[in-house]
């Protein structure tokens, strides 16, 4: 997993609430058996006409935001389906950070497994960041996981909270499975107890 420490980049404003994972990556692109290559279909139905041409109004099609690395979004981003294809598509496009007032649980988890930092901010802060994002490509936001701050293009800085274990894994690009397998003895012990306590499992 790609590590995340500090990122300075363009932020795309997406003020819509309840952006669901069907919007982020529609089901026709879930038929892949790979993780890569989904970036071109990120937000597919909002981004392209049925004939494949771009919808110019869509934020990521606007020249200022084509290289966005951050999304500032409305409430409850990533709701719906558990598809990890959603963070895969975001990452493949180049998005490394999403900021919203709230995230759906499974999407939030999935981000951390893929080197994407989801940041929860209070509504009034999201509003300030949304305004900053609207300034386009010249307004570059800085997200610093070390100091746990987001800084706008004009220097306003806002702190954010993140789980310490997840922060550690993200900053060091750690593989969860490897970490868990270090506790194999505990799992063995649990399974031995289980065989006595709940043998039907």
């Amino acid at each position: 997993m790609q590590e995340f420490t500090k990122l300075t980049g363009v932020a795309a404003p997406m003020p819509l609430v309840n952006i669901d994972t069907d919007m982020i990556i529609p089901k026709q692109f879930l038929k892949t058996i790979q993780r890569s290559g989904l970036g071109k279909n990120l937000f597919d139905e909002m981004r392209y006409n049925p004939d494949g041409s771009e919808i110019p109004e869509f934020v990521l099609n606007q020249p200022a935001y084509r290289d966005a690395q951050i999304i500032v979004a409305g409430d409850n981003f990533g709701c719906g389906s558990s598809r990890e294809h959603a963070p895969w598509a975001l990452l493949d496009f180049g998005i490394r950070c999403v900021i919203s007032t709230s995230f759906a649980d499974i999407f939030y988890n999935n981000c951390f497994k893929n080197g994407i930092l989801p940041i929860v901010m209070p509504p009034e802060v999201v509003e300030v960041l949304m305004e900053d994002a609207r300034r386009g490509a010249n307004a570059r936001m800085t997200v610093d996981l070390e100091s746990q701050t987001v800084t706008t293009s004009d220097g306003q800085s806002f702190p954010f909270q993140v789980d310490s274990f997840r922060r550690h894994c993200l900053m060091n690009g750690l593989d969860d499975i490897g970490l868990t397998l270090e506790k194999a003895a505990s799992i063995d012990g649990f399974e031995r107890d289980l065989a006595t306590l709940r043998p039907w499992v």
Partner: peptide
């Protein structure tokens, strides 16, 4: 529900 990384886990 879990994501695919967690499925692997």
């Amino acid at each position: 529900g879990i994501g695919t990384s967690e499925v692997e886990h």
